[in-house]
Structures are given as C-alpha cells and as structure tokens.
Simulated assay, not measured.
Amino acid sequence: MNLLLLTPEQHLHDDHWRLSERQASHVLAILQAGVGDTVKAGILGGSMGLAEILSINNNEIRVSFKALSQPADPPGLSLLLALPRPKMLKRILIDATSLGIKQIALINSWKVDKSYWQTPNLKADLLHEKMLLGLEQARDTLLPTLTLAPRFRPFVEDELDAWAGDGQRILAHPGDYPAMPHSQTTPTTLAIGPEGGWTDYEIDMLQKQGFTCHSFGSRILRVETALPALIGRLMQLP
C-alpha cells in the first residue's frame, strides 16, 4: 500500500477521516506511525496529499487530510480484454489499474469458457475492491470505468465504436502482422484476446470497427504476462 486511499464512507467532517481496518493495520504494523506523523494519502476521484494522524484509539485511526496535488494525467489507453480465467481476473485488474488504464471492457470470446461469466469474482464490489488496490499501488486516485460485455457481437456492433472513441485501435494477435507500435502519445484502444487468440470471425468483426492487427512476436503468452509487456511497449507511463 503506497497510498492511503480515502473513500466517501470514511469521511467524518471537514478534513477529518477515519481509516479502514486494513489501512489502520498497515499504518500501525508496517509504517509504524503514531499521532502527529504524516503519510501519503489521496481522495478517491480527487487530489493527493498528506494525512496527519490525529488519534489512535483501540486501532481506530482518525486523520486530517491536506491536499497537495492532482493525480498525473493517465496514459490515454483503453483496454478491451477477453474475459480471463477467474483466478487471474483479480490480479489482472489490479495490474491494469496500477498501469494507469482508465477504461476497461471485459468481453466474451468464443474461446472464453462460458463458466467464467458465472464466477463470483465478477461481482461488482469485488471488482471495485481490486481496482482500489491498483490505485493504492500506483499512488493514483482516479478509478477506471469497467464494462462487462458477455455478448461479443452486440457489444462490438452497437457499443464498441462509441466506447473506444477517437484514437488508434490496436488488436494484439500472433501472426504475420506489423510489429506492435511503441511509445504512443495519443489515445489508444488495445484489444487482447484469450490465451488461444481471437477467432477469425472475431478479428474480422474488430477490424470492421477500425482495429488493426499487430504482432508482439512468436511467443504465446499468458494474458497476465502479455498485458504489462504490451502496455510497457505501447505507452509512456506518467
């Protein structure tokens, strides 16, 4: 935890806040901070600054927050991701959020097991929790928007164009395609398929929406490996 991320339900009055049990445990056990000490903090959706510890009472910690700066501009990358294996979904969401992605859509694919859409890991509160962890890791306060698209064709035909907006649209897929671009400075939407890759039908549908296929080498990577590698190549992170 590199940032105490303060959420609306923690607000007491004025600039006073109550830390969650998890945050209080971190402050006491890891940071070993006491009354009068300051730690890096931020307001969800808002500014970043310092939290001064006002009181510690039976592991309940109250702080005052002083805003110092706004979060850095995000890299302008949107992620269209075939729904990954449930046990990796939480980790991938944390990583995607910590890398600064502010728009994520989890979409179906023919090679995505139908049972993945029934997993309890898709509950909104659990997904929200994992993205908060990503913000804490990266010292960011701006939460990504998350869209679930369990039906591939309706989303691609009816919603994808507006969702992706302006900018380049890149489809990562192994094969004889141009190399993946690098050091993008303009808005970009990146589509990453399941570990077996997109089907020909899915590629055709995405190409009709302006996506171009690019290769990242001949190796077949797990999604959790491909995601940070692709983003590290594509974007200059703030």
Rank of each mutant, 00 (worst) to 15 (best):
M1T: 06
T7Q: 13
E9R: 11
Q10V: 04
H11M: 14
L12F: 08
H13S: 14
H13I: 01
H16V: 08
R18E: 07
L19Q: 05
S20C: 03
S25F: 08
L28M: 12
I30P: 00
I30K: 07
L31S: 04
G36V: 02
K40Q: 15
G45N: 13
G46S: 13
M48F: 10
S55T: 13
S55H: 07
I56T: 04
N57I: 03
S64Q: 15
Q70V: 10
P74A: 12
G76E: 11
L77V: 05
L80F: 00
L83H: 11
P86R: 01
K90M: 14
I94R: 13
N108V: 06
V112A: 04
W117L: 00
N121C: 15
K123C: 09
L126F: 13
R139A: 15
T147A: 02
P150A: 00
R153F: 05
R153Q: 10
F155Y: 13
V156E: 07
A164I: 01
G165P: 10
G167E: 04
I170G: 00
H173N: 11
I203V: 15
D204N: 13
Q207F: 02
K208W: 10
F211G: 06
T212W: 00
T212V: 10
H214T: 03
S215R: 06
R219G: 01
L221A: 07
E224V: 03
L227E: 08
M235C: 04
L237D: 01
